Computed example of a mutant assay.
Amino acid sequence: MHPAIKLRHLRAFLDIAASGSLTAAARAQGITQPALSRSLAELEDLLGAPLFLRQGRRLHLTEAGAAFREAAARALQMLDAGAAALRPGAGAGRLRVGVLPTAAGQLFPRVALAFAQRAPQVTLAVETGPHSHLVSLLRAGEIELMIGRLPEPGDMAGLRFDHLYEDRIALVSRAAHPRIGQPAEAALAACPLILPPQSALIRRAVEDYLLARDIRAAPMIETAALAVGRGVLAGSDALWFISHGVVADELARGVLVEWPTGAAALAGAVGLTRRQADTASPALELLVRLTRRLART
């Protein structure tokens, strides 16, 4: 390997590969897009091969890029393991997991409580955030498991997904919305919209639903954060497309109401994503078993 290749090059490359976007990867790393672009250009120059092809606004791995991603991910995992081995006990008693919003509200709290009863000596270190960020952490070995929606096919190289259940995309509003009782399409055409962020896995399905009904209004706000969405709904007549798992408690309490959309396509698989090559620790196996059991109840 060229001696000028640095860890920052590898992390930049893996983040871009996970998100397919320079903007999203730069945001995840906390650096500017031009700085990230320079790191990628340097890496491609040092390797002597293009790693990505640009198609519209998305970056797709070349054949060389796909092969290098596997090697780079394994290299970072081995470096992390080697560093941890120099600090005996530093990583003991911690299990690092990533939780996407669709599983963060109802499923994961029950899993965490059950895990704490079974393995009180192990601390769950939980990361949250957008899908691209958590996939990047998973590939880099900074989390051992991701719980949430099925990643895009282009993100699945070197990963495996275990299906738990299907989670629909819900259209919700405040309980006292003045148009309750009207068809969802009529309300969508007349009311402000809250959409998931561009980086959210469910965004494309929502856009396809709206396009098929010729609803083209720009969203008032984009968010998958429960506190933000709930607060905006409480003070407006907006309608929010969001994973049902995010708002399940609010719907059960009657704080929010769900509008029937009649669209079977507004659903997706939720499950466990891990690296294919990993050997699970006893703590991780316990967490996986508990998650599978509680997802069925």
Rank of each mutant, 00 (worst) to 15 (best):
A263W: 06
R289Q: 15
A73N: 07
P109N: 01
E70P: 14
L137N: 07
R213W: 07
Q55H: 06
A71T: 07
T273N: 07
R216C: 03
L171M: 11
R289A: 15
A277W: 09
A4Y: 01
Q121W: 09
Q198A: 14
A35F: 03
G148D: 13
L14D: 10
L22T: 12
A35W: 03
V270Q: 11
L53S: 15
A83D: 13
H60S: 12
T32Y: 02
G229N: 00
I242N: 06
G89V: 08
A28K: 12
R8Q: 15
G20Y: 01
T297D: 13
G235W: 03
L195N: 07
P34Y: 00
D155C: 11
L46G: 03
A217E: 10
V232L: 06
A248W: 03
G91H: 12
A4C: 04
D80E: 14
A18E: 05
E63Q: 08
L193P: 10
F52V: 06
A85K: 14
E127I: 14
L47N: 04
P196V: 01
A41D: 15
R179G: 15
W240S: 01
R54L: 02
R96W: 11
R57E: 03
P183T: 08
P151L: 03
G245K: 07
I16M: 05
Y209V: 00
D214S: 14
R57I: 07
A66K: 01
F13R: 06
P101S: 00
A186L: 13
P178M: 09
L36D: 04
Q77F: 10
I147G: 02
M146C: 08
D162K: 01
A217C: 06
I31P: 13
A85D: 08
D162V: 13
G148K: 10
E152V: 15
M146Q: 09
E207W: 09
P34T: 08
A81C: 02
V97K: 02
